[in-house]
Amino acid sequence: MPKLPELVCPAGSLPALKTAIDHGADAVYMGLKNETNARNFAGLNFDEKSATAGIRYAHDKGRKVLMAINTFAQGVDISRWQRAVDQAADLGVDAVILADLGLMDYASRRHPNLRLHMSVQSSATNYEAVNLARDLFGVQRAVLPRVLTLDQVGHVIRHTDVEIEVFGFGSLCVMVEGRCLLSSYATGESPNTHGVCSPAKFVRWEQNGNTTSARLNDILIDQYGQNEPAGYPTLCKGRFEVQGDTYYALEEPTSLNVLEMLPQIIDIGVSAIKVEGRQRSPAYVAQVAKTLREAIDTAGREMQRFSVKPAWQAALGKLAEGQQQTLGAYNRPWK
């Protein structure tokens, strides 16, 4: 049997972390309760106590915990980000996921034994970029932005000894991660600067008869009829007007789902498959982890003979944003 990619699941809270482990995640990723991580949402994430408990829970079961410190340190005083790296090292995480090159530099000098993963927010879309991070900081894994075709992912893998992690399921960023400022253009806060995209405090839902309007900082993002599936009021997934046509001009509310490509993903040597959604509930984590665990194991056994079970597709389909799913950039026609 070929070497299976690790299943890396999101944990926005301690129950989500335990749930992910219980349902078959090989590793979970988490963030601290501040702007050092890209899901800096009110009430979400870990403090020292819950992080300690979570790491113990995972390690007792032989699983890994990765700490995402994946926003960009701002300005001159970057001590909060450096402290987050120190804290992660002290807590005994299995790796930190970093986006900022200056912070990678700090981590590699200060904690030479701490394993470094290059965050998707670093926007490394080619092997030269990945190899630069390896040469400079000893990065051992890179998470690729969701813009490459599967062939291009394979090409990167063939040209680097850095492990490659790709996204397998979850709400889809249609833009190159780390290179999207749409949120700050509308609100002043972006993933890079504040660890948020289309932040909740700027969101307003308006009910007008049977129509629901979603506004972000007063900018109308979308309107939904009574039973129309809704999505997050994320800028890239709104309906806009271009030359008189009103449509999802950038992207539909949709989720990435790579189930049908699993044998190819295994075949080209992907090291880890990541699930998006630290902002989602334990119920989501349970269903995704369980489904992908089963699907990855089956794909590894069956490879060429593999076919997606309708039950998996149904389980994931229900969780998908806008109840739509796509193979995203992995599949050339999407472009």
Binding site: G75, V76, D100, D105, T193
Partner: peptide, 27 residues
């Protein structure tokens, strides 16, 4: 970053553009 790598290896001084995400003095 890949472009920065090649420029560095060739010893060519370069301009780090807006998309290089330099948000702080260490970077």
């Amino acid at each position: 970053l890949g472009a920065a790598k090649l420029a560095r290896e060739s010893g060519i001084p370069f301009v780090a553009g807006t998309h290089m995400n330099v948000y702080n003095s260490s970077t």
